[in-house]
């Protein structure tokens, strides 16, 4: 992998860790970070043996969101920059790994959005979640699309329009978080253990069908499920399951 400037990447056996790290900058997301994330995705998709990828933030912050330093108020703002961010978010959402966000500090805007596309979200008591975008006159990316699926439309409207700073307990209660713990490393170890053997194809397809579940007609979803199920049951993971079932019968 090429050298990364906005984040660090470590891989130990089945566990890869991506740490957002822009000291003094609140780990804010800029073009360089999007490019670094793309390089990490290339590696994870093509070369990595890791099964679980953890995303965390250095310096006591998860991420304070988009870095306005890349914008020049005198110039026409390039909407394609926003699209580059959405594209990398989708790519992270579809990684052939199980993903976990470890939030220990503020997760604002794009940082909150990043946490939302992970398969699981764990947080310390110091975590906060905040979407201030609408109060700043713009939109919190495709969090508009994803957030309501977690919390319901009513809470989502409040979180976008009233822009409360959510503490970890409220985020847990709303379904944004899966777990709050003082000991994040212990919580992470338990969460990873709970993923079981991790059959990548089944994980990817289950996640995809869930992500599509609020916006697909039932008949279309049924066709999609059958196509996905057929792919799953032709994988060795399920064939092994069948063999074991036969042996123990």
């Amino acid at each position: 992998m090429r050298e990364l400037t906005t984040l660090t990447y470590e891989e130990h056996g089945p566990l890869a860790t991506v740490t957002l790290n822009r000291p003094g900058q609140g780990n804010r997301i800029n073009i360089a970070m999007i490019q670094d994330l793309a390089a990490v995705c290339d590696h994870l998709e093509d070369a990595s043996e890791a099964r679980v990828v953890v995303f965390r933030g250095a310096n006591g912050v998860f991420s304070e969101g988009i870095d306005f330093g890349d914008f020049d108020p005198g110039k026409l703002i390039d909407i394609h920059g926003f699209n580059k961010w959405e594209k990398i978010v989708v790519r992270l959402e579809r990684l052939p790994k199980v993903t976990v966000a470890l939030v220990d500090g503020p997760a604002l805007g794009g940082g909150f959005q990043l946490a939302l596309v992970m398969d699981q979200r764990l947080a310390s008591p110091r975590a906060t979640f905040h979407l201030p975008e609408v109060h700043l006159g713009f939109l919190p990316g495709m969090a508009t699309f994803r957030l309501a699926k977690y919390v319901g439309l009513g809470h989502a409207k409040r979180i976008l329009l009233c822009a409360p700073v959510l503490g970890p307990e409220e985020a847990l209660r709303l379904g944004i978080l899966d777990r709050v713990s003082e000991d994040l490393d212990q919580a992470l170890a338990e969460t990873i253990a709970s993923f079981g053997p991790i059959h990548t194809v089944a994980v990817q397809l289950a996640r995809r069908l869930l992500n599509e579940s609020f916006c697909t007609q039932f008949e279309d979803a049924l066709g999609n499920f059958l196509a996905a199920q057929h792919r799953s049951v032709t994988q060795t993971a399920f064939l092994d399951t069948l063999k074991r079932a036969r042996e123990t019968r």
């Binding site: 995809r208 066709g223 999609n224 059958l226 196509a227 057929h230």
Partner: peptide, 13 residues
């Protein structure tokens, strides 16, 4: 056909 397109979508991601 719809089913074969579904199959392409979900097998080729």
């Amino acid at each position: 056909g719809k089913k074969v397109i579904d199959a392409m979508e979900y097998n080729l991601d």
